[in-house]
Computed example of a mutant assay.
Amino acid sequence: MIRSTETITAMLPVLVNISIAGCRPFPALSFDTHALALSHWVYLGLRGVDCIERFMHEWEANFALLRGICTDPETAGAIVKEGAPLASFRMHAPVAPRQVYCTIGNYRSQLLQAALDADDGPQGPGAAGRRDALLNAIEVRRRDGAPYICLKGPACVSGPDDSLPIAPDVKTLDWEVEIGVVIGKRAIHVTPEDALDCIAGYCIVNDLTLRDRVFRQDAPTMGTDWLQSKSRPGWLPAGPWMVPAWGVADVSQLTLWLRLNGGLMQAGVASDMVFTIGEQIAWLSNSIRLEPGDLICTGTPAGLGSHYGRYLCPGDVVEAGIDGLGIQRVTCVESSNY
């Protein structure tokens, strides 16, 4: 478990969703190389310990109890002594969201890279003008605009080590490493400051996107089609675990990276977001009601496949990591269907 970072407050247990020998997945706490089912602490009053979805729906009731367990100095020892090696379990996504929301175009580095890649390219005579126009547009948007957020089907969520099937018609499947924010408290009309109190925790997500389906060729004036471009099964690997919000000292300083077949493709820091996580939650809460367990994918830094002209294909191995939130490793495999 790679968790050492100044942005993480301490080496505390993290929440995982695991199974063994074909049983149903169950939530557990993991520390170092071991995991122990949350049912071990049910005597303290934890609710929904048999299922991660039920546990998250009871987050407000579980919050203080779980924090007490995680910060208890004896918990780490209990996990190692009474638990089992994490390697003996199958890792599932640490969340089972009712809804998934994806924030589009939210890192300055990614927006700038896309602007420089356009027209005559990064070295062309028009590059400087596009750069200045983009930076000005970002400041105007921060002052007068709002986050651009779309829906992604919850059936897309897959585990951190699952295979990723790629059908023959999928030619432009792109990667997007992002900080996933898991909601723990119902949010309706909250402010950006109060929004942070609604967060249960953070995890890694890879918001896979089929670039040639973002815009419909048969209806070019209709805008973006996020259903076709984002929502097939397996197109949102999540995990390997969730770090509760109290375990992250400063989310804006988390660094994100993604490697394709060992080569670094993306690297960024959350402070590069155009709209902060609190602002994203606040904006969403004024349009819809956020419920415990809902997942927000908060944007991706520069280094997309569309920049490199290289997309995912069978045989590729995609590793995505964030400070303190672990590393997920997905292998692309050939598939004859969705």
Rank of each mutant, 00 (worst) to 15 (best):
M222N: 13
A245P: 11
P240F: 00
D161W: 06
C156F: 08
Q123F: 14
A133N: 12
L134Y: 07
D194Y: 07
N206C: 09
S252C: 10
W235D: 01
G121C: 01
S229R: 05
D250V: 06
L227D: 07
V205N: 04
D169Q: 13
T255L: 00
D207H: 03
D207Q: 01
L196P: 11
R130T: 04
V182L: 09
I166S: 10
G184H: 08
G223C: 04
G121W: 03
P233Q: 12
G121Y: 07
H189F: 13
P220K: 05
N206L: 02
L256E: 06
A187M: 11
G129K: 11
A219T: 11
G239M: 00
N136Q: 14
P233G: 07
P122C: 03
A128T: 06
Y202S: 10
H189Q: 15
F215M: 13
T209A: 14
I199V: 15
G126M: 13
P125V: 07
L208E: 03
A128F: 01
P168V: 02
L151H: 10
A146Q: 14
N206H: 08
K152G: 02
Q217F: 11
D174E: 09
V170E: 14
V140S: 12
V157G: 02
I199Y: 08
P160H: 02
V243N: 06
W226P: 00
R216V: 02
G201P: 11
K185V: 15
I179W: 04
A245F: 00
D225G: 02
D144Y: 14
R142Y: 04
L208Q: 06
V205E: 02
A118S: 15
I204C: 09
D120H: 10
G247R: 07
A146S: 14
A195W: 12
D120A: 05
P244R: 03
K171H: 15
R130N: 08
E176F: 07
D207F: 01
Y202C: 08
V190I: 13
D161Q: 12
A200E: 08
R211P: 08
K185H: 15
I179F: 05
G223M: 06
T172R: 12
M242C: 10
I204P: 00
T172L: 04
A167K: 09
A187G: 10
G234W: 09
P122V: 04
D120F: 06
A219V: 06
T221M: 11
T255N: 14
W246S: 13
G124H: 11
L236P: 02
C150M: 05
A155D: 12
L236K: 01
R131D: 07
A167T: 02
P160F: 04
S229D: 03
C203V: 08
W235S: 01
V248E: 10
D212P: 09
G247S: 10
K185G: 03
W241G: 05
P220S: 01
Q217S: 14
V214C: 05
I149L: 03
A137H: 12
T224R: 15
V190G: 13
P147G: 02
V181Q: 10
D120G: 08
Q123H: 14
I188H: 12
G180Y: 00
